[in-house]
Simulated scan of single mutants.
Amino acid sequence: MSKRTLEGKTMFISGASRGIGLAIALRAARDGANIALIAKTAEPHPKLEGTIHTAAAAIEEAGGQALPIVGDIRDEGSVQSAVDQAVERFGGIDVCVNNASAINLAGNLDLEPKRFDLMLDINCRGAFVVTRACLPHLLESDNPHVLTLSPPIDLRPEWLAPHTGYTIAKYGMTLVGLGVAQEFKEQGVASNTLWPRTLVATAAVQNLLGGDAAMAKARKPEVYSDAAYAVITRDSRECTGNSFLCEDVLLEEGVEDLSVYNCAGADADLAVDLFVDHV
């Protein structure tokens, strides 16, 4: 298990006003990390919990320093401004987490081009723009990490037929992460992707994948945040270019009972996430 911590380190994370992104930020905050978060939700949403300001308050309550920045990762100027603010406030960036993502599971005839464009802009292009803006500062860190929340690439037709647009957008994020790993390996910048083996209890699962029934088959967001923490505290020169699954990371870290993450208890009937074969 890693002996490193994130105390005094600075994380730049996209879309962390709720859910998995916020869980990752809170785990880092418990070490005393600095968290710069860029998200669009400045005012309460009628269907979604939390805003960037409530997230910042939770981060500081957990022991971290928070810099909430209202911005849109589709706009490279907005991203660059956010990165500049983070560096001015905290002196650098050690970890970049590409969490922001859009999901639309419609098939080709039902997916409007503007919805396709939205997923590409937020998921694939957003990961590229955020990572690119952070890289000059990551190169100055003593243990720099990029972590992109996207799946391993599997080109079997079963992952293409139902939702080609979403698959392209998520696989695009993975290609960004793996490309950065290869390009900056010699400079010591780690870049990995991370994805859950099972559903994780988020607003997307609640609203799009089956409501309360799906949530009962899911694991808590902490399965993602604990795995993310394990990856980004590893030696950046020894851990790069991987497409990890959360549960595999946790088992490597010595977690013996993954059922502690089940929303519905140890005997829950878990459902596999997209792009994954089995629990």
Results as ranks from 00 to 15, higher is better:
4 R>L: 11
18 R>T: 04
26 L>S: 03
35 I>L: 00
39 A>K: 00
41 T>S: 10
41 T>L: 05
45 H>E: 03
49 E>K: 15
56 A>L: 00
57 A>M: 13
61 E>C: 09
61 E>M: 12
77 G>E: 15
77 G>K: 13
78 S>E: 02
79 V>C: 02
82 A>T: 03
83 V>L: 02
89 R>V: 03
90 F>V: 05
103 I>V: 15
107 G>S: 13
108 N>K: 11
109 L>G: 06
114 K>A: 14
119 M>A: 05
122 I>T: 01
126 G>M: 01
128 F>A: 06
129 V>G: 02
134 C>F: 11
142 D>I: 05
144 P>L: 09
157 P>K: 12
158 E>V: 13
159 W>P: 05
164 T>S: 12
168 I>R: 07
170 K>A: 07
172 G>H: 04
175 L>M: 12
184 F>G: 01
186 E>Q: 14
187 Q>M: 12
193 T>H: 08
200 V>S: 01
203 A>D: 15
206 Q>R: 15
207 N>V: 10
215 M>W: 13
217 K>A: 15
223 V>K: 06
228 A>I: 11
231 V>P: 08
236 S>H: 06
238 E>S: 13
242 N>I: 12
251 L>S: 11
253 E>N: 06
255 V>K: 05
256 E>S: 14
258 L>P: 04
263 C>S: 14
272 V>M: 12
275 F>M: 14
